[in-house]
Design a protein around this nucleic acid. Sequence first.
DNA 1: AACTCGGGGTG
DNA 2: CACCCAGAGTT
Length: 342
Amino acid sequence: MTFSNAKFSDAVLAWFDHAGRKHLPWQQAVTPYRVWVSEIMLQQTQVSTVLPYFQRFMASFPTLADLARAPIDEVLHHWTGLGYYARGRNLHKAAQLSCERYAGALPDTLDALMALPGIGRSTAGAILALGFGQRAVILDGNVKRVLARHQALAGDPAKAAVSKAFWALANALTPTQRCADYTQAMMDLGATLCTRSKPACSRCPVQTSCMAYAQGEPTRYPEKQRKQAVPTREAILMIHRQHDQVWMQQRPSTGIWGGLWSFPEWPADAELPEQAEPLPAFMHVFSHFRLHIRPVLFSSRAVLGVSDANGRWVTLSDLPALGFPAPIYSLLQRLGARQEVC
DNA sequence: AACTCGGGGTG
DNA sequence: CACCCAGAGTT
């Protein structure tokens, strides 16, 4: 480690001691399991969004063994509304693999952690540093932003060559001593001071050595390529209702809304039957397309035009045991409010 | 290397 | 509306 690298981590650690976050739920009663669950939930998801999900998840699955033996549908129910549902499936699968391979504990090496589904290089580093107290390196959105600005690193970090440079820099700056605190400090720095817009440079512990600050335009970094406008698709959802039940299907485990329960789709270009009663349509936005959802209510006795594969009748009391995409769960609640399901 | 995967917060 | 957030898996 060079003198300047040690100076960087020392300044970051000194700042952490008086300004870092120390009261987040996963910072209390720290275990590798709790750190792991929090890191998975926090992938591409902000802290404030995760907080209630983490608390509910830990109350239901307090240990890795509890998670491993829980039904997948119950795990996915705890993910309802959180998004990126493959994270929930991978978490469950990795818990079972850990029970089989490592006697109910998480492994404590980078390679073994990365071999588990849902754990990549950065999450493995976070588990080792925060959960096991090892010297390990992370590179999440916060760290990328801090490093890009401090070193005025040009290029889109999504590009492989640029990413390699970011990892090398992150590794060079990560100290051997107090690695857990440094790891938390870098995330805190990115989340609270070195924010995407309006960074609080006046309070930054490494402002004097920050190249982007010296250049006068810190928000220029990190560079990102612009995304093109997303297309809009249409989905007609058939809500077959019989008394207090609706007919639902579990989606395939891969692809959009994998493993979650939804209503059967009616081909967007086909004509609707006479007895179809349209409900208010609404828009659901994904990162890569917009979905115009047109719910249609069928009160007929027969389930029309859908195969019964992966399907079942669902009542209100079934909801806690199943996973749903946010717009479908919202639709179910609206149906319940109309006392059509409940 | 490019693409796929959600939902919510923010300006 | 655009952007992005404690990224990883698939192709």
